[in-house]
């Protein structure tokens, strides 16, 4: 069985700074880590491998050359291989072209049975790349997975919902994005760190992938960030207390102007 885990290198802080000129995230000078949600995806990949016996875990990322550090961290945890998709042509990708590029990378890996991602990255918080990759590959996807069982050509996944969870059966290959309830990520081992230090991490560029150049990087990205701003804080709610009939009357009085559109 072939397992692919998609990881993103993110700044080691939730306080992301933004370049006011380009309206993109500033990554320079900020210590980087593997996106915390992706740590659960890596752990799940390792657990699936351990349960399956014969399986490999390949970690894939797209980004600038320093993303190699994140991939080495993943190897130290026990992943078998890592591949970095890196090219100037990929720079400035939004979630669309990132998904497109990563999907091309997975296609090049070939015969992947299970693709795992974190539910979202802590810098952009879009939660779009995992689903986008599945879409480009034409594969089924289950998002927000809190439990995953891999059977023979089929997987059973519990998808976390606000009020409980759904149980879904999906044919493989498929893509899953995972939530932190799924497992507890392990720490690296000394042997893993030594192996990771020496590992060769192949870098795949645009020329290594079967891609339409017009879908790549900033040019291939339909998203245009027009303005970045902190949303207005929401006002506190009002609690009506007391007799039911009275409070219903009060509520109706408060709501009516809103419904009529009087209270702009």
């Amino acid at each position: 069985m072939k397992i692919a885990v998609l990881v993103k290198q993110v700044p080691d802080t939730t306080e992301v700074r933004i370049d006011r000129e380009t309206n993109t995230l500033i990554r320079e000078g900020v210590p980087s880590i593997i996106n915390p949600f992706d740590m659960y995806a890596i752990e799940e990949g390792l657990r699936i491998r351990e349960a399956a016996g014969e399986a490999t875990v390949t970690v894939l990322s797209m980004g600038p050359p320093q993303v190699e550090d994140a991939l080495r961290d993943a190897l130290a945890l026990g992943a078998d291989d890592a591949v970095l998709l890196s090219d100037r042509a990929f720079a400035g990708s939004d979630t669309w072209s990132t998904s497109y590029t990563l999907a091309s990378g997975i296609r090049k890996l070939g015969d992947v049975d299970v693709i795992l991602c974190g539910k979202q990255a802590i810098d952009g918080d879009t939660a779009q790349v995992g689903p986008g990759v599945a879409q480009f590959l034409g594969l089924p996807q289950v998002t927000y997975v809190r439990k995953l069982e891999i059977g023979d050509g089929v997987a059973t996944a519990q998808r976390m919902m606000e009020d409980g969870y759904d149980v879904l059966r999906v044919p493989l290959p498929a893509l899953f994005t995972v939530v932190k309830e799924i497992n507890e990520p392990r720490l690296p081992s000394l042997k893993g760190k030594m192996k990771a230090k020496k590992a060769e991490i192949p870098v795949w560029t645009r020329d290594d992938l079967d891609v339409d150049p017009s879908e790549l990087g900033l040019d291939g990205s339909p998203t245009r960030v027009v303005r970045i701003f902190a949303p207005e804080p929401r006002g506190g709610g009002v609690v009506f207390e007391g007799d039911v009939d009275e409070t219903v009357d009060r509520l109706a009085k408060e709501l009516l102007p809103v419904i009529r559109g009087d209270s702009q």
Binding site: L187, P188, S189, L190, K193, M194, K197
Partner: peptide, 9 residues
Amino acid sequence: MLRELCAQI
């Protein structure tokens, strides 16, 4: 490497 790992643990 050992120091880093032990600090993390």
